[in-house]
Design a binder for these strands. Structure first.
Lengths: 192, 192
DNA sequence: GCGTTTGCCTAAAGCGTTTAGGCAAATTAG
DNA sequence: CTAATTTGCCTAAACGCTTTAGGCAAACGC
């Protein structure tokens, strides 16, 4: 009986592809086994369980995304960097909807801390160096940017912005303008 | 054999409660049947299938959320309205994480169009009347606000902002400041 | 070549979904 | 008030996904 050459690595990668094809929450051990022409039980030597598989896909996607983002911001600054960075998120989600959905899965704290999520935060901070923000405003801004990217991409992918004018690309461009303007004129807390 | 008094309505409501307790994607027909002390098959007279059940929960949550939001913005304007509106989203998600997750489920276009999602967009527009925005900027702003609320709440609920200073409440407050400032000084598109 | 490790297998149990068909309770009509 | 009809929940059964236990054979290390 020839061996299929399963590894955790290959399963994760194939799982990510599967996610892009059928949606992250239709990623199933059974389907994966089918694709490798292998019995389901065989997967369990390489992956603890379905949740473990999903987690690995999420981590893979976070890494890929961080790599792309890293490339994108290299040699750029200010609004240019901001836009390039944001576009990475949006483009990745459009090319790889399943992987993108995976990045939205909630990871347990230890896993999250060991993930590329940390790199994402660092890169966001790097971008903010082009603006005049000091702590704690920088952290607030990191969180705000994360929220916008995350939220926009989710809504767009869910079809929230289709079938209504103006088209999503236009809003995206203007969102970049808005964020740039906001970061250049970050408000000091009004007296409350 | 006494009847349990199942209705689509009651199932949906119980499903929503279940979602808040165990998480939206652990909402299962079996568990729901257990809670009503009824056989699983009995549910299928009231609900087409599990996806139908989930969709109904999502629609319920959207309605509840719209009702709350409607109350919150009544009699308020400007930043006051913006903050009250935003707080509704955040508070709802904290009180009802399962229902909130349901609102993030992607609905097919017809269902979405018939949902309270439409009311949400209208209310957001109403809030923007306190700022000086005309179309198409108003639509861009509606989408941006939606993205921020949606994204922030998701990330916060996933634990993204816990275990690091400053605390999430502080960022939330400053996010309101930032959005208010942004809307008051909405940038015109730079010459590109 | 031989022993050990490793990889994939068969088998089986458990649980969730969904459909088909049936009996009894509730409702409506005469 | 009883008879007919509708409605609500049932049993039964098929199917798919997950997960564990235990086995045989291929690959590898000496």
């Amino acid at each position: 009986m020839a061996r299929a050459g399963l590894t955790t690595e290959r399963l994760t990668r194939a799982g990510a592809d599967l996610a892009d094809e059928v949606g992250f929450d239709h990623v199933t051990a059974s389907e994966l086994a089918r694709r490798f022409d292998v019995k389901v039980a065989s997967l369990y030597s390489h992956v603890r369980n379905t949740h473990d598989l999903r987690t690995r896909i999420a981590l893979l996607a976070l890494e890929e995304l961080a790599d792309r983002a890293s490339d994108a911001v290299a040699g750029r600054a200010g609004k240019d960097a901001l836009t390039a960075f944001a576009n990475v998120y949006r483009d990745y989600a459009r090319e790889h909807p399943g992987r993108a959905a995976a990045t939205r899965m909630s990871l347990d704290p230890e896993t999250a801390a060991a993930s590329a999520g940390v790199r994402h935060a660092q890169m966001t901070r790097a971008i903010l160096r082009g603006y005049d923000l000091t702590e704690p405003d920088q952290t607030h801004a990191v969180r705000l940017l994360g929220s916008v990217f995350h939220g926009y991409v989710s809504l767009e992918l869910a079809g929230g912005f289709s079938h209504s004018a103006p088209d999503s690309q236009e809003t995206w461009t203007r969102t970049m303008d808005a964020l740039d303007a906001l970061l250049r004129n970050w408000p000091t807390p009004p007296t409350r």
